[in-house]
């Protein structure tokens, strides 16, 4: 328990440290909020053009699709806030041997390198996603229960961890191949698959996106809870997948560390 509170306290300290740094560039928040909103407007135009041609896409109506887009936005932004930068930095640390400084600290290194930096602008941005979800739910005439909110939040957290696991594994790859910046591009490319309903994909691709590259689990399952479009089985499956992926990161991290060659000395 003492161990747990130590980690909790450390997380608080690291986040506070980043907040102090970010507050020096307050205008940055406004800029990021603006650019992300533009990006969402583009997505909304795309969705509305498609629904201008048909009332239903693979059994989803327009506002249900907007709930999905909003959910996806919340998850992606929170993931980027907590982990994206850290994974990018990790690649350089491994390659340049800077990992030494983290390895000598009396704390779990995976924890430290994964959570060191927080991007607050992305946290602010995720609130637009919540606004969009609420607006779309209003249009659908759907209410939300307290239980629904709790389940949704838990699933969102789970999705963020799955995203983290995938990107962390891609970064740790650096131990073996020396440079994996290109692999990080995969994050943006895979992200494409999570934006739309799983029902549009043929059987094989859909199964692939629910297991090996679980892009459909991360967005479709939490959104499904809000619009009552889900089997309970998938919720349990999603949580299990989160645990499995997280365990996998720890295992690969240990294997990778054995290959670490430190700095040039």
């Amino acid at each position: 328990m003492a161990e747990f509170s130590k980690y909790l306290k450390l997380t608080g300290l690291m986040m506070k440290n980043c907040l102090v740094r970010e507050m020096q560039f307050k205008a940055n928040f406004v800029v990021r909020l603006f650019t992300e909103t533009m990006w969402l407007v583009m997505q909304f135009i795309y969705i509305s053009v498609m629904y201008g041609q048909t009332g239903q896409i693979a059994g989803w109506n327009m506002w249900e699709m907007v709930v999905l887009a909003g959910t996806n936005h919340v998850i992606a932004q929170l993931f980027e806030a907590l982990f994206y930068d850290n994974c990018m930095r990790l690649i350089d640390q491994i390659r340049q041997g800077d990992l030494d400084f983290n390895l000598i600290k009396p704390i779990n290194t995976q924890f430290l390198v994964s959570l060191r930096y927080t991007d607050y602008a992305s946290i602010v941005n995720s609130s637009i996603g919540i606004g969009i979800i609420l607006f779309a739910l209003g249009k659908l005439g759907l209410g939300i229960t307290l239980g629904g909110v709790v389940l949704f939040a838990a699933l969102v957290a789970n999705s963020i961890l799955i995203y983290y696991s995938i990107l962390f594994i891609l970064s740790v790859w650096t131990f073996w191949i020396g440079r994996s910046n290109n692999l990080m591009e995969l994050y943006w490319q895979f992200g494409q698959f999570s934006r739309y309903p799983g029902e549009i994909y043929p059987w094989l691709l859909r199964r692939l996106l629910q297991t090996l590259i679980p892009m459909l689990i991360v967005s479709n399952v939490p959104a499904g809870v809000l619009i009552h479009k889900l089997q309970t089985g998938l919720i349990f499956y999603g949580f299990t997948l989160g645990v499995v992926f997280l365990a996998l990161t720890a295992w690969i991290w240990q294997r990778g560390l054995q290959r670490y060659r430190s700095a040039s000395s």
Partner: peptide, 9 residues
């Protein structure tokens, strides 16, 4: 696949 679903509709 997305546009296929739209055209199917």
């Amino acid at each position: 696949f997305l546009w296929y679903a739209v055209y199917m509709g």
